[in-house]
Nucleic acid binder design. Structure first.
Length: 438
DNA sequence: GCATGATCATGC
DNA sequence: GCATGATCATGC
């Protein structure tokens, strides 16, 4: 009887109890009743731990440890190839109640009440292993939102609430926000009914507040990786902090920026130069911007011609033919990317032919364009199944198309029809990117 | 100027 | 070795 050994009203006692799990699996510590694993819903291990390790009631609508005001979360990790762990997926916090959130304030919100203080358990996910046998590979984490993150999360919460207030719950995207995402939650299957929202007749898919995987990673790795290049505060937003970093370079030629930053093109063929230069502006040295990583933000550089048209369309990660055939839109990596928030760093050729930094701009894809991107993706899936040599061209959509992305023409994949087809990826049309940047 | 196909340096 | 972001090259 493991649960007799701790005090549910004491954070200290709960934490000590949780620590017993470190290095162990649930089935190492408790004997589960037969069929226990079959009766649970999704997020099985979390339920099992609550019920059989902490002896908590199965159905709690409130906080898990009511008296200690502590919420329990269980989340999966994957092994990194380089060693260490990374988040398997986002950490789902609490369902968004469209009807109630509009009358809440941040201070009075259910979200804050539930998520202010959390005990997070990390287990290593493994294929073909039953959840009760997953090992808790890290110590539990007593998580309290720290001040620096609190400002960002508060604003994220307000952005999501605002969408519901404006009758746009059905248009919510993860890219609307920085750390706190509104992720899809629920089966998504044909049996699932979208929910009503208070200020529109359109039904909206159910969503939950969640921490993005990138944010969870920073909890695993410890605070030092979070970075302090951007000074966000209660009066300075993420956007403002970014603009500030670039401000001194706006209007400058690429050459001058290069000189100021002390970073030069490694060769004529250094295609990632502007991206690398932009990274250095934001982060000083190194090839990463921790704050952007933490928020899962995609930084993209865009070069405009004199007329303001992007010189190129915008590429995304490659896809595999067998993969796309198995996926639904919402599982695809293109969907994931398009739900992200983007940071565009925009250069433009002036009348003398000199390329200059003109602006930085945050953006995430509007609802109607995500619908069009979905159409292109689904069309691609169909055409891969039919003949992977004939995929959606730029002229077939205002938003996206498919084109090669490979080392060279010999860098191919076998199509379902048995042809060697050069590797492909999705692109956002240059003309579409132009419209974004107006 | 644009569509299409083909790379290239980098980092892990 | 390979994915990735970005750009180059060609033909119309």
């Amino acid at each position: 009887m493991v649960h007799d050994k701790y005090d549910k009203t004491s954070i200290d006692s709960i934490f000590k109890h949780a620590k017993l799990l470190t290095g162990k699996s649930l089935s190492d510590l408790v004997t589960l009743p037969p069929n226990a694993e079959k009766t649970g819903s999704r997020g099985k291990l979390g339920n099992l731990v609550e019920q059989f390790f902490f002896d908590l009631p199965v159905t709690t609508s409130g906080i898990d440890f009511r008296d200690a005001k502590l919420e329990l979360k269980t989340t999966g990790l994957l092994k990194r190839a380089s060693g260490g762990y990374k988040a398997k997926e986002r950490l789902v916090l609490t369902m968004i109640n469209y009807k109630n959130i509009v009358s809440e304030t941040w201070e009075s919100s259910i979200f804050l009440e539930k998520c202010k203080l959390m005990l997070i358990l990390f287990y290593l996910y493994e294929n073909d292993v039953s959840p009760a046998d997953y090992k808790f590979v890290l110590d539990p984490l007593l998580y309290e939102i720290e001040e620096h993150d609190l400002q960002i999360i508060k604003r994220d919460w307000e952005i999501i609430r605002e969408k519901v207030l404006n009758g746009k719950a059905h248009e919510i995207s993860e890219g609307d926000t920085f750390y706190l995402g509104a992720c899809r939650k629920g089966s998504g299957g044909p049996g699932e009914k979208p929910r009503e929202q208070p200020f529109s007749d359109v039904r909206a898919k159910s969503r939950a507040f969640s921490f993005k995987p990138s944010y969870v990673n920073t909890l695993i790795a410890g605070d030092d990786v979070a970075g302090r290049n951007l000074e966000v505060s209660d009066i300075k937003s993420f956007e403002d902090a970014t603009s500030e970093k670039f401000a001194q370079y706006v209007g400058m030629s690429i050459q001058d920026i290069s000189q100021h930053v002390g970073y030069e093109k490694s060769s004529v063929n250094h295609k990632g130069f502007l991206k690398d230069l932009s990274t250095r502006i934001l982060a000083g040295g190194g090839n990463k911007v921790p704050e952007l990583e933490k928020a899962g933000i995609e930084m993209k550089t865009v070069r405009l011609s004199k007329s303001g048209t992007p010189r190129e369309s915008m590429s995304f990660p490659g896809f595999k033919f067998d993969e796309i055939l198995k996926q639904d839109w919402e599982q695809s990596s293109f969907f994931e990317k398009l739900e992200s928030k983007f940071l565009f760093v925009v250069f433009r050729e002036d009348t003398d032919g000199v390329e200059r930094l003109v602006k930085v701009q945050y953006w995430n894809m509007p609802f109607s364009d995500r619908i069009e991107a979905k159409r292109v993706w689904e069309d691609t899936k169909k055409r891969v199944a039919k003949d992977a040599r004939n995929l959606p061209k730029i002229s077939e959509s205002q938003v996206a198309h498919v084109r090669p992305k490979a080392r060279n023409s010999k860098d191919t994949l076998k199509s379902p029809q048995g042809h060697d087809v050069v590797k492909q990826c999705f692109w956002l049309n240059a003309s579409y990117v132009k419209k974004i940047l107006v």
